[in-house]
Design a protein around this nucleic acid. Structure first.
Lengths: 346, 346
DNA sequence: AATATTTTAGAAATCGATTTCCTATAGCCT
DNA sequence: AGGCTATAGGAAATCGATTTCTAAAATATT
């Protein structure tokens, strides 16, 4: 791909300009601006005043090159405009600003190829750390190894691969899923279906496991046919629900690993003239804003996405950044909460 | 604020390492990697192979410093996790990736102070261009002048300040607002209220103007009391609607400049046992996802946020990037569309 | 075959800040 | 007052890639 060259911008004021106009050495200017103790407050004042006067702005690029780190953190998410991820990013951003770090954000649109490119880009940009939530397509982890090879810190969150050793921040998915089923069972639902994402992702395996465990613990029947692993959109949720609800042995409740899928199930019910919660219970994941607005309102597992973002960034600043080579690698579990709404209350 | 120092990462492979191991000059390596025509394909091949073998990764920082530009674009929005802005960012990101540019994203949380800081940060990072949508608080533009002083391109979008000369990408807000009122009028609503944002923002002035013009053109009465300028949240929308709907002369329709405000109006109606669309018409702005999910579904002005993002980035790559000093500055209007739903259909 | 021209590769300067090492001066002590 | 220690400020190297300038080698021309 050809890259259009760009006109160089006009030069801006550098520490050399400040030094010359004050008749001191550039190194002194640098020290003054960095508040070094080896510089008198008289000179510091001079330099600061002159910097203001001439509109000096620090060139992070030059400093980064010399220092070897950038105070930039890279974030890779499947979709920036899904509110779960948007909230995580917002939380990360808030904490990063507090620590004077910037954020470079990439989206993979659920494609492995784009994920690999994003990793490349971030390494090139010299980011200090990469925070990543894997795409649905991702099954190989060579590109994550690449991050390690370049000695860049990284933290996986939500959609993680256990195949690679790293700090992680996740919900307790198995437990959350278990509790969701417990909730449905307590509301009197007996035949609970599971609509999850691709089973090669850890996250969905755990949720499925929690689902199975709860069925067993509560003596509920496990129907192989009620378990679907590739349901990730409203459309596929609707389609699959339509199908299941028209078989002989039909589910009377759905545990969906996404609120969007819950929505699809709801649409299916409406089409079949069934009602929730009376005929069918529904609970989803993520507590998207719309869950409280639809009729009936949708129960959901709140994953505390904004807080997850904060915790990811805080983990970086409190531990990962200072990580020694042989230090223990940590997993943080973010709380979850069953938000009971109409769709599962009978 | 103290900044914790960071351990320098282990060194990675540089062009010098490649050069040494191939017994050629670093400059030749650079040229080879940049596919310069002054290098034989034999050497290019050698260099590329060796680069792969040693896992060489280009150091953007060093290149940026030398070149004077960064291929990084800074984006400043009020809130990353509002779907309108999240969509815009997603659109921008898509186009930037196509042009091998990265994105640094800042959120202001509607605070001028954070906006000023964000601008500072982006200038320091040597971004090539800043894309900004102003915070609700922003009334001064000194910080935007600062962008210009540093010869950094910039484009304002959506919430713009006309006080400063720049490329802009916006909806035709006056027209959209006008059409929204026309739509309400055609549905038989007579007493239309306007719930808008702070009048110091251009955007809201235009929408108010469109509203006024439409009232006049359609011979509808203009009630001073029906026009509110600081309604930007669901809560304030509800509160103000409750108030207006309990006065003597009450509105029978609301034009809200945000879907969140529409939602508040709807809540007010429910509390007062009024119904929409029968008693009161509602139309909002942004076509947020939830507008089609609530009961009754909410009409809205689709602002095509994702497309707006794409157009912003495309404007940069097609024109701004190549901008000559005395070139004409352009405004792009992004289409809008009235999405008629239940809340305004009677 | 001798000269002119074009290619190809290398040497060295450069971008702007940081940092290490060194020197001069001020301040301190006996 | 002489000598010693702190302290403040400067000189120069450095980070890694790009780019300009130069020169040698390869090719073309007459």
């Amino acid at each position: 791909m050809a890259i259009v060259p760009m006109a160089k911008r006009e030069k801006r004021i550098t520490i050399y300009d400040l030094a010359k106009s004050l008749n001191i050495a550039p190194s002194s200017v640098s020290k003054a601006l960095n508040n070094s103790h080896a510089i008198s407050s008289k000179i510091k004042k001079m330099v600061e005043d002159k910097a203001k006067e001439l509109n000096y702005i620090h060139n992070t690029n030059a400093a980064n090159l010399r220092r070897g780190f950038s105070r930039i953190i890279g974030v890779i998410v499947p979709k920036i405009n899904e509110s779960f991820f948007a909230n995580i990013i917002a939380g990360i951003e808030k904490v990063c600003v507090q620590h004077q770090h910037s954020l470079i954000i990439c989206q993979t649109e659920e494609s492995l190829e784009k994920e690999v490119n994003a990793v490349q880009t971030l390494i090139r940009q010299n980011v200090d750390c990469i925070l990543i939530s894997l795409s649905l397509e991702t099954q190989s982890t060579a590109h994550l190894e690449e991050i390690k090879n370049n000695h860049i810190h990284f933290i996986q969150f939500d959609r993680i691969s256990p195949a690679i050793d790293s700090y992680t921040v996740v919900n307790d998915n198995e437990e959350a899923s278990y509790q969701a089923v417990v909730h449905l069972a307590k509301q009197g639902y007996q035949n609970i279906a599971y609509f999850g994402g691709p089973a090669h992702l850890n996250l969905y395996q755990e949720r499925k496991q929690g689902y199975k465990n709860a069925l067993k613990d509560f003596g509920l029947t496990f129907y192989e046919d009620f378990v679907k692993d590739e349901i990730i959109s409203t459309a596929s949720g609707k389609q699959e629900a339509l199908h299941l609800l028209q078989t002989d042995v039909k589910p009377d409740a759905f545990l969906c690993t996404s609120d969007y899928v819950s929505l699809g199930v709801l649409e299916a019910l409406q089409q079949l003239n069934l009602s929730s919660p009376k005929d069918v219970g529904i609970i989803g994941f993520a507590n998207e804003m719309f869950t409280q607005l639809v009729q009936p309102s949708l129960s959901s597992v709140n994953q505390f996405s904004y807080e997850m973002g904060e915790q990811i960034a805080e983990l970086y600043f409190s531990e990962v950044m200072k990580q020694k080579d042989n230090e223990e690698i940590k997993t943080i579990k973010v709380k979850t909460e069953i938000v009971q709404r109409a769709s599962s209350s009978r």
